[in-house]
Design a protein around this nucleic acid. Sequence first.
DNA 1: AATCAATTTCCACATGATGGGAATCGCCGG
DNA 2: CCGGCGATTCCCATCATGTGGAAATTGATT
Lengths: 245, 245
Amino acid sequence: MTTVQSVVRSMTLLEQVAHRPRGLVELADAAKLPTTTTARLLATLEDLHALRRDDEGIYRIGPTIISLVSTGDVGSSLRALAHPHMVELVGAVDEAVGLSIPVDGVAVTIAQVDAPRAVKAEDWYGTRWSLLGGGTGYALMATWSQSEVDELLDGSSDPGRVRDGIAAARAAGVSWSHGDYVDELSSVAAAIVDDSGRGIAALYVYGPSYRFPDGATHETERRLVEMARRISHAWNARTGRTVVQ
Amino acid sequence: MTTVQSVVRSMTLLEQVAHRPRGLVELADAAKLPTTTTARLLATLEDLHALRRDDEGIYRIGPTIISLVSTGDVGSSLRALAHPHMVELVGAVDEAVGLSIPVDGVAVTIAQVDAPRAVKAEDWYGTRWSLLGGGTGYALMATWSQSEVDELLDGSSDPGRVRDGIAAARAAGVSWSHGDYVDELSSVAAAIVDDSGRGIAALYVYGPSYRFPDGATHETERRLVEMARRISHAWNARTGRTVVQ
DNA sequence: AATCAATTTCCACATGATGGGAATCGCCGG
DNA sequence: CCGGCGATTCCCATCATGTGGAAATTGATT
């Protein structure tokens, strides 16, 4: 199959900007493109409001991109389907809840519902976490085939630790993470599975580590697992196969 | 300035998909492009995970787009700056809170924090609302110049009603909307302003109309206005001018 | 098996993207 | 006020790259 060069390059630039907002020359350098070409592509994206440029020449992701992430297809996307359940879960456990899907070996946060009491209410929307780094990834990989896991582990620095995490996740049905992703932040993740039992997304509860003392969180675990089960069920009950999102 | 055709076309297709997920032919038709060209562009976007296609051939927005909306530049974007304040406001008023910015005559929701109790917790992230349709738009336009408002009103069906709404918003400092956008849903909006007093975004509290009886909501109004003021202040206190987002 | 719509493959054409070079802008230091 | 320098924009010849018509293929429906 043949791909369109300028479109691929534009997406690279968008990703670079998302990674870190910068000016023309730095972006050209990062994308390994001539300055002129970069300027033309950036100007096009700016014209479309996909990027915005401030008066210092720094490019940032613009509103067009944000509005692409709309709820146009409520009812068929996992995100829209899970959202009300997530709100309910937040109400039950009084901590923030997130939802991530795996893409190319990383987990992308596609939805987040905060607890009003959240001490540090950070906004992880769109953030990519390594699958190998902690709870979210372990919970997912625990439901995957050995070969899939091996492929991801190929070349990782500490495969033993990851395998232990996966084994623990498989045994417990959930996967804890204490400060693995962010200092002082703990999370419990559970997989949302398709009708073959394969994890297609991870639902997780998170908050400051001090609010998750060992042993005092069985209720949270229980509710998380129950909600993941309900979301899985709702997802698999849809009529017609559609793609995860 | 010259723009890159294929990039513009790709963005059109992305917007069409966001508007309503569809198959190749329908998208080609909607974008007024030859099928072949559309197929090539869609394949490119799919390859980049900007789009996903299910086994029925329906294209949907993919995870790459979602991860573009990241928080890479925490501290300089309005969204990241406002987020913790929004969480606090949710805690105070016990209703959902949203944040929108104006783009090309519409308001795009760039952040949302739900109240755990939300009866129907819908996900408006990325949704575009008309500025002329209700509270959000009135709150913003109340801070804009007459000529800017006139430009937007040019060709609108009921300019008188909008002008009344703007006048009310200017007088009250907030703008109410009861069922204007969505049935049974009420909202109060207040503008977040730059250092010249011009509205750059709208902060709003919303929930089922029955929870907003007239006269029992002064406390909500007060807290909303106070929070909008604080966010405005934080925004204008930043060092270095940056663009709204 | 026949029909029809949707999608993919193929390919000749020329348009539209490309990038080198030069001009311009904007800022800073002397 | 004047160079100097990096960043950005303008210009334009070149041709690689994107384009879209036509035909083949797939796949669902009757």
